[in-house]
Amino acid sequence: MEIIEFGNSTIEYEVIKSSRKTIGFEVNPEKGVLIRSPKNLSSHQIKEMVKKKAGWILEKQEKLNEVKSKPVPKEFMSGEKLPYLGRRYRLKVTTKDIQGVSLRLYQGKFQIEVSNKITKEDRRELIHQEVINWYKKHAATKLEERVNKYKKQVGKEPAKIKIKEQKKRWGSCSSLGNLNFNWKIIMAPMSVVDYIVVHELAHLKYPNHSKDFWDLVGTIIPNYKEKQEWLRINGKQLNI
C-alpha cells in the first residue's frame, strides 16, 4: 500500500501495473483505492497524479461511507423483522403439526408456521426459501400492477414481465421488449418501486440513457434523482 497526505486526510492506495496506456483511478467499496497504471510510470509520477486526483478520491470515499451495508443474515425467529414495500414487519414463528412451511402477512406481522417434523438443522433454510417464494409471488403481482399503471403514460406495452434473481440490477429491458425485475425491489418503498418500473418502461421507447430518456422519466417521476439516491444508499439493505 502507498500513502499520500492531502490536507487533514490520508489516502491509502494500491498500484496495479499492466500494459495499459493510461492511468485509471478506482474507489472500490471492498478493495479501497486502486490505481491502474502503465508499467513505465514511476512511483513518484503515480504519487503526483494521485495528489492531483485526491479531491475526487475523497469525495468518492465520502459517498461510499453513506452506503448502508448488507444486513446480517436472518435466523428467521420470532421478533426479527422483514421489509416489504418500505415497511418492516415483525416475524411470528410457530411450530405446528402441518406439512412443510407456510407464510402469510397478517395483522401487521409475517406469520410463519413450521412443521414440527422439520429438524432444527433444516428449519432456517426451509423458512428462508419460503420467504423468498413469498417475495417473488408478491413482486410479480405488484410489479404487473405498477406496469399497468404507468405504461399508458410512457406509451409502450411490454411483451412480458419477468421476476428474476439479479445480483447487480434492479431491472432491465430486453431487445424483445421484456421487462425484467429483481424480486428484491419489492422490499423498497412503493415510490422507489415506481421509479424502477418507469425507468424500465422508458427503455422500451429509448434503449439508452439519452436526454430524451431522462426527460420522459422526469415527466412521470419528477423527483427520480431522490429515488436513485435512496437506492444508492439503501440498496444493499434490500436483502434477507
Results as ranks from 00 to 15, higher is better:
I127P: 04
I127K: 00
I127R: 03
H128E: 12
Q129C: 08
E130Q: 12
E130V: 02
E130N: 14
E130Y: 05
E130T: 14
V131R: 02
V131H: 05
V131G: 02
V131A: 05
I132Y: 04
I132N: 08
N133I: 10
W134T: 12
W134A: 05
Y135C: 04
K136S: 02
K136C: 03
K137T: 08
K137C: 07
K137A: 14
K137I: 07
K137N: 10
H138W: 13
H138I: 08
H138L: 11
A139F: 01
A140M: 09
A140G: 07
T141H: 09
T141R: 15
L143P: 00
L143R: 01
E144T: 10
E144A: 03
E144S: 06
E144P: 00
E145R: 02
V147L: 07
V147R: 05
V147W: 00
N148R: 05
N148Q: 10
N148I: 07
N148K: 06
N148P: 03
K149L: 14
K149P: 00
Y150R: 10
Y150P: 03
Y150Q: 07
K151Q: 11
K152P: 01
K152E: 15
K152Y: 12
K152D: 15
Q153P: 00
Q153F: 07
Q153Y: 10
V154S: 08
V154T: 11
V154Y: 02
V154W: 03
G155R: 09
G155C: 11
K156H: 13
E157F: 07
E157K: 06
E157R: 11
E157Y: 05
P158T: 13
P158E: 14
P158Q: 13
P158G: 13
P158R: 04
A159E: 15
A159G: 11
A159C: 11
A159Y: 10
K160T: 13
K160C: 08
K160D: 15
I161P: 01
K162I: 10
K162S: 09
K162E: 15
K162Y: 13
I163C: 03
I163S: 01
I163F: 10
K164Y: 04
K164R: 14
K164L: 13
K164N: 06
Q166W: 02
Q166C: 04
Q166G: 07
K167H: 04
K167G: 08
K168I: 15
R169Y: 04
W170K: 01
W170I: 08
G171P: 05
S172E: 02
S172N: 12
S172T: 09
S172L: 04
S174K: 01
S174A: 02
S175F: 04
S175T: 06
L176E: 15
L176Y: 07
L176T: 12
L176R: 15
L176F: 08
G177E: 12
G177Y: 09
G177D: 11
N178S: 10
N178H: 12
N178Y: 07
N178D: 15
L179E: 00
L179T: 03
L179Y: 00
L179I: 11
N180C: 07
N180M: 10
F181Y: 10
F181H: 01
F181M: 02
N182Y: 04
N182L: 01
N182I: 01
W183Y: 15
W183P: 00
W183A: 05
K184C: 12
K184W: 04
I185D: 03
I185S: 04
M187R: 08
M187Y: 07
M187F: 05
M187A: 10
A188T: 03
P189R: 14
P189K: 14
P189Y: 14
P189F: 09
